[in-house]
Design a protein around this nucleic acid. Structure first.
Length: 748
DNA sequence: CGCCGTACGGTTTTT
DNA sequence: CCGTACGGCG
């Protein structure tokens, strides 16, 4: 038996307060590295062990599945097996579980499939088609964004239509209505629906509402600053009977507003629960004072924030290293070399390092450099496993087996491997089905019956498509029916094998791709089979449901290697967003440039700019001992290269915290041992003539460029120790910005 | 009618 | 640079 003293030892005063304030609403504002995960775990242990709350009556919501696993293992350190009964997970996973449990009572198809981003897009295209949306004028992505946002605020299609004030709003309203109908027809829920449907369930079914409100004595929500309106509403509903709701968050770390996370939730919490107690966790146990001061200097640049102090008893620590590389290849080289040096000089395992970047595309150069230097790494995100084509294909077959009305999965694989079913056949089938107001798969069954009865081409119900295609489609439908049969009687890997065998998927891969690529793709299928075999212990139907659900709800951050595993000897490559909640002794933040961080798309919006700043703050505060802020003088992106000035956030960091590292040393190294491409680049850089200190070109001058042809100078300006000349070239080339030191311009 | 080639456009972050 | 859209061919 664990005592209260044992749970509370090693906690500071506010942490203790956060653990022991158990009755009524509680708002914990926790700065980075303030031990909030630990506090939540201890709070749960305290509730169970000291107060005597049954674990299954505690609902604890985390941001990722990984965080949920971590929480469970922390709690079980105190409680042992009892931790297994906790209701623990992300909003999405908890809602999916609840919806399956209550499906029959709320008239929901228990076999519902969960649609991810790509599935939603595919459905959206159909919705736009049916709703006659001019997709040239209004992009599907924008419409989907508006719909998703509406759902996050619990706005129904009807309400949306009523509130629509402009033409775009009317278009979205039409698409929204159609899109929701299609989801129902397909027996599918998208991510937003998972939340919305549970909120509706609790609002509309008194019995179920009472059941869950009675059950949950305590509700905890972590990363509260990143919840949306619907999620907050859901948490409130769960805590409707016992208002013991504890939310934990940090407004300075709110980085998901683009996903409809709403910072107003924190303000509303204080309004909705006027008797709420607030606890501030401000002592930082993670970073050195230098890192903390630098991070604070950055976040202090935001106007929309409440000042809070951050302090640590740890000393000043190493200075923050700032470095300007020549281009992204040299930037990556610097990171790889620096890691190698620290591994050697400070005996640090690779698992202590993380390299962070704003966009996934930036991982490429880093990977190349790490491979070259033989530094082991783990890439988080990027082209995710479950997004690979072959994996999605096989999953689509399995989803179709679970729910044949899933038209998104159907369209995906009806012609994979190629069976000679093209767009024309599919649209005819679709038209035929809609005429009769039946789902496409039912239409297929009808056609099959009709053919078997010998009706053929004549008569009132004549088949909509050619004989050959009809036969192929019937064979396809029969195959799915057979696989459903397999699924009912066998475990999951048998079903997967059945899919591979009946579709001839392996043969298809080797026919479609060259051997190396086919090998790789087939290996991915093997990996998927390994995952599937973990569900073999479950009963036939249940295995498929859980597998598909887990696959749909798995996230990037769930694949982050565990840092506490001493053998996880790998450097972590990760986006700034995915790094939230993590910490590393050594952190490299790359591409600290205007246009990247802050991202160019946030330039004209003050709110978005503040979010970029918070993102920068989140990245910096991941570092425990050493922090590197790196940028490149020149960066390649989508074909062309560009020069980005240093990020504005760098300017906010006091100079005395920073050690500037010159690029010279590394440049020479690269010239000596680097591949020829780098040698050429550096040679060219060294050769370039010194840039004159006065502007060389004035507006109106005529110039010639070897590739762009003739043009007229629009303007020119000094940029650091170089000159940027804006030239309007003739013809299709248009206006270009050129750096004088690189552009071979010629006066005419 | 389906398949394969070329042109073009868009381009952050992810539960 | 990558995925999609469209046009010609089999």
């Amino acid at each position: 038996m664990v005592t209260a003293e044992h749970i509370l030892e090693d906690l500071n005063a506010p942490q203790r307060e956060a653990v022991t304030t158990i009755a009524g609403p509680l708002l914990i504002l926790a700065g980075p590295g303030s031990g909030k995960t630990r506090v939540i775990a201890h709070r749960i242990a305290y509730l169970v062990d000291v107060i005597g709350v049954a674990p299954w009556r505690i609902l604890s919501v985390t941001f990722t599945n990984k965080a949920a696993r971590e929480m469970r293992s922390r709690v079980s350190a105190h409680l042992g097996e009892a931790a297994g009964d906790l209701m623990l997970g992300t909003f999405h996973s908890i809602c999916a579980r609840l919806l399956r449990t209550e499906a029959d009572r709320i008239g929901l198809n228990r076999q519902f499939n969960i649609y991810d981003d790509a599935d939603q897009m595919s459905l959206m295209k159909r919705a736009c088609e049916y709703a006659n949306v001019d997709t040239k004028r209004f992009k599907e992505r924008a419409i989907l964004g508006a719909i998703s946002h509406a759902k996050s605020e619990l706005v129904s299609p009807e309400t949306y239509a009523r509130q629509a004030r402009d033409y775009f709003g009317e278009v979205v309203a039409r698409a929204y209505d159609t899109y929701q109908q299609l989801l129902v027809e397909n027996g599918a829920l998208d991510f937003d629906d998972l939340i919305v449907r549970v909120v509706e369930m609790l609002q509309n079914h008194e019995g179920l509402r009472e059941k869950y409100q009675e059950r949950f004595l305590h509700v905890l929500v972590d990363e509260f600053q990143d919840t949306n309106i619907a999620q907050y509403q859901l948490a409130r509903l769960f805590a409707g009977k016992h208002p013991n709701i504890c939310v934990v968050g940090d407004p300075d770390q709110s980085i998901y507003s683009w996903r409809s996370a709403d910072i107003r939730n924190i303000l509303n919490f204080e309004r909705d629960f006027p008797d709420a107690k607030t606890v501030l966790l401000e002592q930082n146990y993670r970073s050195t004072q230098n890192i903390l001061d630098a991070a604070h200097a950055v976040i202090a640049g935001n106007k929309q924030r409440k000042e809070k102090s951050l302090w640590t008893s740890a000393g000043g620590g190493e200075p923050i290293v700032a470095y300007e590389a020549y281009d992204e290849a040299e930037e990556a080289d610097f990171v790889a070399n620096e890691i190698a040096t620290l591994v050697e000089e400070e005996r640090r395992p690779y698992g202590e390092f993380a390299v962070m970047y704003r966009t996934n595309a930036h991982s490429r150069a880093l990977e190349e450099a790490l491979i070259r230097t033989r530094v082991p790494y783990a890439l988080v995100g990027g082209t995710r496993f479950y997004e690979r084509r072959e994996v999605k294909d096989v999953l689509a077959y399995m989803r179709l087996v679970q729910n044949p009305h899933d038209a998104v999965s159907f369209t995906r694989i009806v012609n994979v491997p190629g069976r000679g079913i093209g767009t024309k056949t599919l649209s005819e089938l679709d038209r035929w089905a809609r005429e009769r107001e039946v789902p496409p798969y039912t239409a297929l069954q009808l056609i099959a019956e009709q053919e078997n009865a010998g009706a053929g081409r004549s008569g009132a119900g004549a088949r909509p498509i050619g004989a050959k295609q009809t036969r192929t489609l019937i064979e396809f439908q029969e195959m799915i029916a057979e696989l459903q049969n397999v699924a009912e009687k066998n475990n999951l890997s048998t079903l997967l094998d059945g899919v591979l065998e009946r579709t001839g998927y392996r043969k298809y891969l080797y026919a479609e791709f060259d051997e190396a690529e086919a090998d790789e793709r087939w290996e991915n299928i093997g990996e998927l089979r390994n995952v599937a075999s973990e569900y073999d212990g479950l009963s036939a139907g249940h295995g498929l449901v859980s597998f598909l659900e887990d696959v749909a709800l798995i996230s990037d951050a769930d694949t982050v290697p565990d840092t506490d595993d001493p053998h996880s000897g790998r450097v972590t490559l990760i986006t700034l967003h995915s790094a939230k909640g993590l910490e590393y002794p050594v952190v490299f933040m790359t591409a600290m440039e205007e246009g990247v961080l802050p991202h160019i798309r946030s330039f004209d919006d003050a709110m978005q700019m503040e979010e970029e700043r918070r993102l920068c703050y989140v990245g910096m505060t991941r570092a425990k001992q050493r922090l590197y802020l790196i940028r490149a003088f020149k960066r390649y992106g989508m074909g062309s290269s560009s020069h980005n000035p240093p990020s504005r956030f760098l300017k906010d960091i006091p100079q005395q915290l920073i050690a500037q590292r010159s690029a010279v040393r590394s440049q020479h190294e690269a010239v000596e041992r680097g591949p020829s491409r780098f040698r050429e680049e550096f040679a060219r850089r060294d050769e370039r003539p010194p840039v004159p200190e006065e502007l060389v070109y004035a507006g109106g001058e005529r110039v010639r460029h070897p590739r762009f042809g003739e043009g007229i100078v629009v303007s020119s300006q000094m940029v650091k120790d170089d000159q940027e000349v804006t030239v309007a070239f003739k013809g299709e080339v248009g206006i270009k910005k050129l750096m004088l030191s690189f552009a071979p311009l010629e006066k005419l």
